[in-house]
Design a protein around this nucleic acid. Structure first.
Lengths: 179, 179
DNA sequence: ACCTGAACACCGTTCAAGT
DNA sequence: ACCTGAACACCGTTCAAGT
């Protein structure tokens, strides 16, 4: 058995746990999903999870990484769109992860590892929003506050259910607004 | 002992529990505060709390009501201000309750009683924002999406720490924006 | 290196029993 | 009506023991 076989297996097993946790966390919620439920869904024993992850927070971060990576890969395949459509696409794409969005904000206050992920996520989103607003002609001096407002609108739409039509009106109003 | 003495006592005892829970929930967090900690702080036994509240979620809602009522009473005492200053005052006033804001959003998905409070809160905030934006001359047709954006900005500022100065720039950009 | 059975301390909640 | 002691089922996490 070659030496590089093992790490391969380890990654596969780890991934199975992450996939199981993703489904449960997004559908039933983080607090509502016990480690033993994740274990059962992944076909392992509860404490086996602790061989792969430090604790439940670390498993959450792994789920967040997994979900974000998939969304970014999807985004790369998508055609260029008008700026408003781009934002709406992202909101639609992330809509299924509402429960992750709320739990990240709640856990950020107490879990350093979740807080770190949250910071990195906001840095990424901020970069994307600054670029987008620059492209539609927002003056350089207003880009930072506009990106902040954009972030809050995207998060707000993810945290509060809205009809697809209402989302559209809100986002169009946002991208059409000028300070 | 007159018959109306009892309800008085009951309210006092209930209020003591709410005050104790408010401090603990806002400072240490909801999940991090056990019912037994609330009980100790309030000088009662754990299960006495269940005589006054259905469960931990109901206690959270009582805390939310208490905190909101105090903030509204404060607001009534405040002088009229320019629209942007009004929003900034509210953000400053509610800043201490960041942890309540995040936990409300997280629990809304699973607790009907928290969800009901959350809905009521948004109805209230929406009314205030529509009025405010109308006063600064936003056309009637844009009031609804602008109020939604305003809500998301206020919540976003409460959920993400910002320097006071950055808050000001963001809110000023918001109120100066026109679709 | 990887996995498990059994335990630990703690949690929200309940309930029979007291006054 | 109000409060308690004691219990219940469950939780995240640990650890000695196995392979």
């Amino acid at each position: 058995m070659p030496r590089n076989r093992r790490p391969q297996d380890r990654e596969e097993k780890r991934a199975e746990i992450v996939v199981a946790a993703t489904t449960l966390f997004t559908d039933s919620g983080y607090d509502e999903t016990s480690m033993s439920k994740v274990a059962t869904a992944a076909g392992v024993t509860t404490n086996t999870i602790y061989w792969y992850f430090d604790d439940k927070d670390a498993l959450l971060v792994a789920v967040l990484d997994y979900v974000l990576e998939a969304a970014l890969a999807d985004a790369a395949l998508e055609p260029e769109r008008p700026w408003g459509e781009q934002i709406l696409w992202a909101v639609d794409r992330l809509d299924q992860y509402r429960r992750l969005v709320t739990v990240v904000h709640a856990k950020t206050a107490t879990s350093p590892v979740v807080e770190a992920w949250h910071n990195g996520f906001h840095t990424l989103v901020d970069t994307l929003l600054v670029d987008g607003f620059r492209r539609v002609g927002i003056p350089e001096s207003d880009l930072v506050p506009m990106a902040a407002i954009g972030t809050f609108v995207v998060e707000g739409l993810l945290m509060h259910p809205h009809a697809v039509k209402d989302r559209r009106v809100i986002v169009q109003t946002l991208v059409a607004s000028r300070p």
